[in-house]
């Protein structure tokens, strides 16, 4: 072969290789879509701010869910870090979710536990005293709190809240933590629930099934002072004015369905 052709041949080979690699990349080299994609790992304790709005791996359809989340001190499935949504510094209450055309409140209470909008220290000065801002006794100020849980367990305010700063929580061995890390306080007793929570078998995940894993904290669903489930009437189906009860031609089938335990929804 003419030696002057060698450079051209080599160039052609290189070009072909590049094309092949590009084609394989275009077909998608990612074998598995990870629930928790390999996003840049943040330092423990750091906060995610823009993640809900401009998360690079999330579709734009999710834009608009604005919340802030803090890097949990623990890890989730596969040893991956996860984030706990922060209520006090969210632009919107993310416990309300848009489904279809309706907005839903998520949680176990009929009335959502109040968001922590003011810092505890605005009243509680150092050393746990109430300063002169209101002058009222703390029972009066905090009368919206139903102390169900303390009564059940024999606890009092300062069992969980730090005496130095009620805005921090006692966790015993780990000292005090911010309200955002309340799961560490809950885990002192409810270690099984908190284990399930950190791996996703308990609690709720925000935003979607993939991307950065952001979960709701304990106090988002449970009122920390009255954590049980309130009983209430279940959703009773579509209530349309003038709707015929029983249906017309469906009657036979509905009756048959009910006999087989198929009631509740019509065929």
């Amino acid at each position: 072969m003419n030696s002057r052709l060698y450079p051209a041949v080599v160039a052609a080979w290189v070009l072909a290789a590049i094309v092949a690699v590009a084609a394989s990349l275009a077909r998608g080299s990612v074998a598995v879509q990870h629930d928790t994609e390999a996003l840049p790992t943040l330092e423990p304790g750091s906060r995610v701010r823009a993640s809900f709005e401009t998360e690079d791996t999330l579709p734009s359809a999710l834009a608009g869910v604005v919340a802030e989340a803090v890097h949990a001190d623990w890890t989730g499935p596969g040893g991956r870090p996860f984030y706990v949504a922060v209520r006090s510094r969210s632009d919107v209450d993310y416990r309300h979710r848009q489904i279809g055309r309706s907005t839903w409140y998520l949680g176990l209470r009929i009335t959502p536990p109040p968001l922590v909008t003011e810092s505890c220290a605005s009243c509680h000065a150092a050393q746990g005293r109430v300063d002169g801002r209101t002058g009222r006794e703390s029972e009066e100020v905090h009368q919206n709190i139903q102390p169900v849980h303390p009564r059940q367990t024999g606890a009092e305010c300062l069992t969980c809240h730090s005496a130095e700063n009620p805005g921090r929580l006692n966790t015993g061995s780990a000292g005090t933590v911010e309200l955002d890390h309340a799961y560490q306080l809950c885990a002192q007793c409810h270690f099984q629930q908190v284990e399930s929570w950190s791996y996703g078998a308990h609690g709720k995940r925000l935003v979607g099934w993939r991307g950065r894993r952001v979960v709701m904290g304990c106090a988002d669903c449970h009122d920390p002072h009255a954590p049980g489930t309130e009983s209430r009437a279940p959703w009773a189906g579509v209530q349309l004015p003038g709707r015929l009860s029983g249906g017309s031609h469906e009657g036979g089938e509905v009756a048959a369905g009910a006999a087989q335990g198929h009631g509740g929804s019509h065929d």
Binding site: V32, Q33, H34, D35, T36, T57, L58, P59, A61, L62, G76, P77, G78, G79, R80, R97, I99, G100, W104, Y105, L106, G107, L108, Y199, G200, A201, H202, G203, K204, R205, V207, G208, W209, R210, G211, C221, T229
Partner: peptide
């Protein structure tokens, strides 16, 4: 789109877990 099914999203008790079975690090796994 990467979102959760409406039932999983609306559940107030967290009784519903949804995810990718092929991802060994998923919650469902």
């Amino acid at each position: 789109e990467g979102r959760l099914p409406a039932c999983a999203e609306a559940c107030p008790t967290g009784a519903r877990v949804f995810g990718n079975l092929l991802d060994p690090d998923s919650e469902i796994r």
